[in-house]
Simulated scan of single mutants.
Amino acid sequence: MKIAVMGAGAVGCYYGFKLARAGHDVVLVGRPQHVEAIERHGLRLEAQTFDERIRVSARTEASAVEGAQLVLFCVKSTDTESGAAAIRPHLALDALVLSLQNGVENADRLRALLPQEVIAAAVYVGTEMAGPGHVRHHGRGELVIGQSRASDHVARALIAAGVPTDISDNVRGALWAKLITNCAYNALSAITQLPYGRLVKCEGVTVVMRDLVDECVAVAKADGVMIPGDIGMAVRKIAETAAGQYASTAQDLARGKRTEIDHLNGLIVRRGEALNVATPANRLLHAIVKLIENK
């Protein structure tokens, strides 16, 4: 397939690398410093079991998505509308758009803006940009994607590229499970600038995380969301499977960038208000991250 990655940051570059390595024609759309490094030296993936470079096309212009059969949409939640507007004039009508984003609303936001089929995905991967054109992988990498007419085709391509992929008839629940994990870790990692493994060893942190999770579960229940599996266990395991990972929110704050906190803990606060569910722990962390972000 010809595959375009819109928003080639840590997540987009990781999956773009895997698909290009499997033989697909991949083009990355990203920031100038990454594009320049990738065009000059190739895309580097530093994983736990290998460290490789691969030659792949990279552009700064959204027009690079033209002709793509599959678009991995990986922009920040804050840029969903602007990213969709940028690619819309260049997308083939039969292109598939796979939303690999944090939060639970992005696929619906994309469907309101694009005539193409949009598939939601819950993303479980620990990555960071270690430098221009250089992705560091800390662990995991699986996807849960929603059911659609093209899900089987997309899943087969991803699995063949070494990306474990499940198709779910409850992708909304999977997205909420990921959201709850993000709400438990992201703000705390951002405020402290600590990776997950060190974070959970600090006094009182696991109790605070339990409060955050309980609030999120209460909001989800009031919103009619069925969360799959044991969410408490899933949250606890993250500190083991991605001990060295810093939350994306922590990475954004460290670089002086705007975070996605409004779409994480902030979303829990807004939905809690609408559903008359108290969310004091999420409200406090949301406020602290906004204070740091606006400093």
Rank of each mutant, 00 (worst) to 15 (best):
V5A: 05
V5Y: 12
A8K: 03
C13W: 05
Y15K: 11
G16N: 11
F17C: 08
F17V: 04
K18T: 01
K18H: 09
A20D: 07
G23E: 09
D25F: 08
D25I: 04
V29A: 11
G30H: 04
R31G: 09
V35M: 09
A37I: 10
I38Q: 02
E39S: 15
L43E: 06
L43N: 14
L45G: 06
R55N: 01
V56W: 09
E61Q: 02
S77K: 03
T78M: 02
D79Q: 14
D79Y: 13
S82C: 05
A84V: 01
E105N: 12
A107S: 11
A107W: 00
R109G: 05
V118C: 12
E128P: 00
G131V: 10
H137D: 02
G141F: 07
G146S: 05
S148Q: 10
A157H: 10
A157Q: 15
A157P: 06
I159G: 01
A160H: 13
G162K: 08
I167V: 15
S168H: 08
S168V: 03
D169L: 06
N170Y: 05
N170D: 08
R172H: 03
G173L: 03
L179H: 02
N182V: 05
L188W: 02
A190R: 02
P195G: 07
R198I: 00
C202I: 14
C202N: 15
G204K: 09
V205L: 06
V205A: 10
T206E: 14
V207I: 12
A218F: 07
A220R: 08
D223K: 15
V225M: 11
M226C: 13
I227A: 04
A239F: 11
A239D: 08
T241M: 03
T241K: 03
T241E: 02
Y246V: 04
T249Y: 06
R255W: 01
G256K: 12
K257I: 00
K257L: 12
D262H: 07
R271F: 00
A278L: 10
L285F: 05
H286M: 09
H286E: 10
E293D: 05
